[in-house]
Design a protein around this nucleic acid. Structure first.
Lengths: 145, 145
DNA sequence: CTCAAGTAAATGCACTTGCATCTACATTGC
DNA sequence: GCAATGTAGATGCAAGTGCATTTACTTGAG
């Protein structure tokens, strides 16, 4: 059997903890401001990037790494909240195109300062500039299969 | 407003991705073997560490960073699955003591090789020994407020 | 002792997620 | 054209989670 090295375990446990701590901090900050959850931010931003052309749910789910049913329901809730429009596609009767509404854009923009501030205070105090760079480099290596 | 540096954002986004990728890989491996989820592993291991003395739910929830109701329900499910015993406490009528059953221990032990193998193959190929050490060091810094 | 305040754990309810399946349309091969 | 297969997205149901509150006990002040 392939036993992991102790350092490998240390990487994993601290990765999980770090993720939980930062995530909780950011989510708390957003909740305190009465803003949507972070997962909405990611979706809103991705839809915003797609611009006037919009984006199809199946593309969105791939970028956000969500399961198909999860994407479908997230879009339901965001549509109900008036943050997106769902439009029919010209040449594919099965599909739809998602576009950000003005309200969606406003919410996305309102979330950013809260998100950014939480992120900054959770990360920057711990590191020198060189360390942040190195950490980003090493973490990125983990994200490729 | 406190704008995060670009590298800070890079740390966060790659942290989230790395966490998701490894977590999904480990969870898939466990599911393929018909074993419980990773969150059960953590709880089982913590209870195992407490040994014959057992451990109180309120202590467990602090170590696992779970909300009180989450802990309560996780213990419900693990008890229903026969992996733990819940015993009354001598000197505190409100409380209970959690102890691992033999079955709980067996399951925890059965999970480890699967967990370990997934972890190893998701982490070690990407790094030199020096890099793993450095990554562990840097990540640990993020876990302290 | 007694009452107020505190702590351990459970729980009702609404919402979210996972899984499997379903519906609707599109594409391919004959 | 039209069956068979494929793909986009929705959905019923069971299980899990979050929030607020409740229940049961303990502790501490007077």
């Amino acid at each position: 059997m392939t036993q992991p090295k102790p350092k490998t375990i240390a990487v994993w446990t601290s990765l999980v903890s770090a993720n939980r701590i930062l995530l909780d901090d950011i989510e708390d900050a957003l909740k305190n401001e009465g803003l949507p959850k972070l997962s909405w931010y990611d979706a809103l931003l991705e839809i915003e990037k797609a611009g006037g052309t919009g984006i199809r749910p199946y593309e969105l789910k791939e970028r956000l790494l969500l399961p198909q049913y999860g994407m479908s329901r997230l879009l339901d809730r965001m549509a109900k909240a008036g943050l997106i429009d769902r439009l029919d596609v010209e040449d594919d009767g099965r599909g739809q195109i998602i576009r950000l509404t003005q309200k969606g854009l406003n919410i996305r923009k309102a979330m950013w300062p809260i998100y950014a501030a939480a992120l900054t205070r959770s990360v920057e105090p711990h590191f020198s500039q060189a360390e942040v760079t190195e950490l980003a480099r090493l973490l990125k290596k983990l994200t490729r299969a």
